[in-house]
């Protein structure tokens, strides 16, 4: 009897509390794990310096975040999606179909992508071409396409260390992978002259040639890491020959364990990425549901706080953590203040 009463009262309590589920009073954010640390820093400072509740920030990846973002309008959906890439047209279509028509796009800075190896290991002076020749599935010699046979870095470029090729590359679900393919592999493919060879082999089809440039070797010398940078770091720790692909901010936090490679002779840093000298970087975004502004308390204030000079500027905590501030921050601030909707 007792247990039955207990069960009934428990269900009653839960039903009652579910029905009093009042308006959500905190901003909900989800998306890119690259943006996650910046978003948590902002959320923490926002809660500290305003009277609003602390925003709840989830990671999970740009695509997952944008998918949740586009599920619809209402308190059960998230307010902000973080992304380490621009929203795709297909995603905008999905959003529109679900009633999320008014999206405010905010580009708040840049992130560098670096190659780093064990701190005690050899120095790497890389170019996109070297990386392409070391990692591509197929390479072209004198216009003829052949399987990649390089086993040591010195096979690729005599100036590189005589060390087995082993690179930990972000898995395909990471936004970082896309930038890696575009800014390193395809650029290296063109430098190496393999692009034309691939196009010729595919009957002049340029898309197929690009896909061939992006195809990584499958003989274990290039390892996809689906986890986070911490996993890549652990792999390098256990295999000192490895070279990993990291976000600049992750490297900046672990400079005692990692040694960074230069690309085209440029050492990655907040300054060299900002000036555009360092080639491998990408913009970071967050997307705000305009229809939630005014409904969810603190949403607009959060967005404005995020891009304010104190936070996202050159002396702010985001830059201190490794974000490359957007030179056009004033325009971004204006956009956010005007709630300018994407077209």
């Amino acid at each position: 009897m007792k247990s039955v009463k207990l069960a009934v009262s428990a269900i009653a309590i839960i039903a009652a509390s579910a029905s009093v589920a009042s308006a959500r009073d905190q901003v909900q954010v989800s998306g890119s794990s690259t943006v996650l640390p910046y978003a948590t820093i902002v959320a923490e400072a926002f809660a500290e310096n305003t009277d609003f509740a602390a925003p709840v920030v989830e990671g999970g990846g740009s695509s997952a975040g944008l998918k949740q973002f586009c599920e619809g309008v209402g308190e059960n959906t998230i307010d902000v999606a973080n992304a380490s890439r621009k929203i795709k047209d297909a995603e905008i279509e999905t959003c529109k179909a679900n009633g999320v028509a008014n999206i405010v796009e905010v580009q708040f800075g840049y992130d560098g992508i670096v190659f780093a190896s064990d701190a005690a290991g050899a120095d790497f002076v890389l170019t996109p071409k070297d990386v392409f020749l070391a990692l591509a599935k197929d390479v072209a010699t004198d216009g003829a396409v052949s399987a990649n046979a390089a086993t040591k870095w010195s096979d690729v470029n005599p100036e590189l260390p005589d060390q087995d090729i082993l690179v930990f590359v972000p898995g395909t679900k990471h936004g970082t992978r896309e930038v890696f393919e575009e800014k390193v592999l395809i650029a290296g493919c063109e430098e190496a002259g393999a692009m034309e060879a691939f196009a010729a082999a595919n009957g002049g089809d340029e898309d197929a040639a690009e896909d061939a440039c992006k195809a990584l070797r499958t003989d274990g010398k290039s390892v996809d890491i689906d986890g986070d940078y911490t996993e890549t770091l652990a792999r390098i720790d256990s295999n000192k020959n490895g070279v990993g692909v990291f976000g600049l901010s992750f490297y900046e936090n672990n400079t005692d364990k990692l040694k960074v490679a230069t690309i085209n002779g440029v050492t990655p840093s907040v300054d060299s990425v900002a000036s555009g000298e360092y080639p491998v970087s990408r913009p970071l975004y967050f997307y705000v549901k305009k229809d939630h502004i005014g409904v969810i308390p603190g949403l607009k204030e959060y967005a404005e706080f995020f891009v304010s000079d104190e936070i996202a500027g050159t002396d702010g905590p985001l830059a201190a953590y490794g974000l490359v501030p957007d030179p056009q921050l004033a325009d971004v601030q204006k956009n956010v203040a005007d709630e300018a909707v994407m077209q």
């Binding site: 996650l36 959320a43 602390a54 709840v56």
Partner: peptide, 8 residues
């Protein structure tokens, strides 16, 4: 969604 950064 429990893997979130929750401060309050």
């Amino acid at each position: 969604g429990m893997v979130a950064f929750v401060q309050d």
